[in-house]
Design a protein around this nucleic acid. Structure first.
Lengths: 333, 333
DNA sequence: ATATTTAACGAAAGCGCTTCCGTAAATCGC
DNA sequence: GCGATTTACGGAAGCGCTTTCGTTAAATAT
């Protein structure tokens, strides 16, 4: 491995000058700078980021942790999209992304300790859980951070306009003539589950839809949606439309309907939330509230880098959602 | 930030002894070790991994780079599954995962340079491209590495038993009575595309299916499959079954068939390759050759760590595949 | 001409850790 | 009991950088 010393020896300058040349300091003459840069090229030198980090306290690395309940990790269709958006943004600014876990050398530690140990410049948290103690620690720390899909006033947060999404869904269903609209809700320990439910209730209130029912869908899994729909099917006062708090819930519901010998959209109109890849591919394709995952990732990156660079105050960013009309919704006859 | 010096000062021992106590060296008495560990606990000390890396040359971080042509990054359903498997395995061994890009401080550099710069202990490459010059550099370097889904004799590689997968597919189609089987191939610049094609040809040879045709599906995209199927539909001697080199290709083909007013599986039987999440959810659900992504990730982790720890020779690991029978295949009448 | 500023560079300390080498005290052999 | 090992610890160098503080020579001002 070639070091700054090798460059110094080859060019005859001191390591101080070499370092300065490399970092575009002013007090090094154009001539020697050129000489040094040539040597760098020749010897194929690249600075050791570890050494640099040790002396500058800046690692140019961002930690990312994500807590999700399905146990599918990176396969999570919403989170991986957000992370991709985040990754692209921060990479452009020269940051690397490092996935933090809770093990270091076989020993468990907190995410925060791990981040501190690694010396990351900031940390992005994607967490569905509302009050994860680990996440709380991060929020309360002095390490710059941004929280995605949860809420707190003490840190940067970014999430979709969940309430508005619910309204859009109910508005559309109402405009199609539906008057008995049910909601399959997300788990109440999740921020988004709560928000979407709140939005639903508010919309239902707006239209005076008093006979609307709500079924708990759990942790946004297909199976959760399936089970919730089954209870909805038992109802004597069956809904004609279902707004599910997540696409997977909606897909599960569709399965349950199919298994019951009924049809979407003829017997039930369905709207999901997320617009994951799958939703456009299945048949019938799912009408849904689209979250702009790329944008969420970008926003998270921006807020985080802002805090790192300018020590800004906690800010909150709410990303607009959009109704995507597809085949699972139909005017009532 | 508390350092080893703080612990030394508090306990009255030298930093040498503190360091030794922390690293389970033998020549420190149980008594002082206990004292030091208590102080560590009290002061909430955790070693600075940057400093440690600088002096030990071991970063406990693994780089991961992936090159994929669809531009979807982490959203890639096959790759993200593999990465998840890899991540889980290496995390257990105490390694962090760091995503390498080609930019450092705004300047472009090679992946290899970046890895060297960051001081990772090893690097995993998931690349569909057969002869990416960047990947070649990594393979040729002295940095431990493992290549997923490509082939080389100069490094560790792991991929599915692609040829066998093709055989399984054709075997099954043949057993259902199909005698005119077409293949929608993956791009010839990808290793897996080539291998699956090879397997297809060999199976076709085995059964003497001389009128089988092949359509180029390109880079495993849904649209590629759609286009390929359209050319297949023009054929005067239409196939009765299609084996696609990827699930997305198969899904695209199904779309084309549907758009042509035809039906799967009544008019065409279809088999894909991958078994991505989507395949089980669409309707009709896709019969496919399942790749064990978790296993691929695990194997990659194992080979890489082996090379890091014991400097083993390049080894190749081929992961078994499995036929998953679903609804897109049907016996010919 | 001399005094003063400026430009261009080097010495050395320091970031937080590991580890080689050395040494005093405790333990052992007989 | 005395020399030979062990045991338990500390000093100090070194990992590859950045940065503060000088220093010298050239450029400028007086």
């Amino acid at each position: 491995m070639t070091t700054i010393y090798d460059i110094a020896k080859k060019t005859g300058f001191s390591i101080t000058t070499v370092s300065r040349a490399l970092n575009n300091y002013t007090d090094v003459s154009p001539k020697t700078k050129k000489l040094i840069l040539e040597a760098v090229e020749d010897m194929h030198y690249y600075p050791n980021s570890v050494a640099r980090t040790l002396s500058t306290k800046k690692s140019w690395a961002l930690g990312i942790i994500f807590v999700e309940d399905l146990g599918i990790g990176m396969k999570h269709p919403f989170f991986n999209s957000v992370i991709e958006g985040f990754k692209k943004s921060v990479e452009q600014k020269g940051y690397d992304l490092i996935f933090l876990n809770r093990y270091v050398g076989g020993e468990k530690m907190t995410y925060l300790d791990h981040a501190l140990h690694r010396g990351v410049d900031g940390i992005a948290v994607v967490s569905s859980n509302y009050d994860d103690v680990e996440v709380e620690k991060i929020i309360g720390s002095s390490l710059p951070n941004v929280i995605i899909d949860s809420h707190t006033s003490k840190s940067n947060v970014v999430y979709s306009d969940n309430m508005r999404g619910s309204e859009l869904a109910v508005d559309y269903l109402y405009s199609l003539g539906h008057r008995n609209i049910a909601h399959i809700s997300g788990h109440s320990k999740t921020f988004v589950g709560l928000e979407r439910l709140r939005g639903f209730k508010s919309a239902v209130e707006k239209y005076q839809l008093h006979n609307s029912s709500i079924a708990e869908g759990g942790l946004f899994s297909v199976d959760g949606g399936y089970q919730a729909m089954k209870t909805l099917l038992q109802l004597e006062n069956r809904p004609t439309a279902i707004f599910a708090a997540g696409d997977n819930l909606a897909i599960g519901a569709m399965k349950a309907i199919k298994d019951a010998g009924l049809n979407v959209p003829d017997d039930f109109s369905i709207i999901g939330f997320d617009d994951i890849e799958l939703s456009g591919q299945i048949s019938p394709s799912l009408t849904t509230i689209k979250q702009d995952m790329d944008k969420i990732g970008e926003q998270a990156a921006e807020l985080l880098l802002q805090q790192i660079n300018h020590k800004t105050d906690p800010t909150i960013s709410i990303v607009p959602v959009e109704l995507i009309k597809r085949e699972t919704t139909k005017a009532i006859k």
